[in-house]
Amino acid sequence: MTSHRGAPRRSSGVTDVPLPPFSALLEAHGGALLRYLRAAVGPDQADDCFQDTVLAALRAYDRLEHRANLRGWLFVIARRKVLDAHRARGRQPASTADPPDTPVSPPEPQDDTVWKALARLAPGQRDALALRVGADLDYAEVARVLECSEAAARQRVKAGLDRLRQDRLLEAQR
C-alpha cells in the first residue's frame, strides 16, 4: 500500500523524517531551479533540462538519504543534466546556434545579447555564475554543487562576470 516497494529505508535519525510531497519541494525551489537552468544552458534547452531533473529527482526521491538538504540535492541533479546538455551540444557538428525549439514564452528580443554573452563563457564559469546569480545560491552552496572549494567558486563567478563586463564594453563601443 505504501510506496517503498523494493526501496529499503535506513532507520538512522534523518531518514525517519517524513519526506514532504515532491511537489512542495518544486513549489519552493522550482523557480530558482529554472533560473539556474536558463542561465546555464539557455532558455531553449532549459525546459527539457528541468523535466529531466524532475524525473531523475523523483526516481531517487523516496530512497533519498540527504534529506537535510533537499534543495542542494536538487541542484546537484540539475547540474548533472546541465553537464549532459553541454556534452550533447559538444557532439553536435554545428554548435553555434541552438535549434529554435518552441519555448514556453516567446523570447524577448532585447535578451538576445545576454544569452549570446553567456554562451561565450567557459562552461565552468557559466555554471558557477548560473548557480550564484541565476539561482541565488550562496558561495558555500555553489561550491558544494560544483564540488570545488568556496574560493574556486568565487573565482569562477568573478571570472565569468569580468568576461561579461568586457563583452558589454565592447558592445557599447560598437
Partner: peptide, 25 residues
C-alpha cells in the same frame, strides 16, 4: 548593475515556472 541586468534578462516569469512544473509533472 551587471548582476541585476543578468537576473532580469534570465527570467523566467512565474507563468514559465508554472508551465515547466506542470509539463514535468
Amino acid at each position: 548593475d551587471l548582476t541585476r541586468d543578468l537576473r532580469a534578462a534570465i527570467g523566467p516569469t512565474a507563468a514559465d515556472v508554472a508551465a515547466a512544473q506542470a509539463r514535468a509533472g
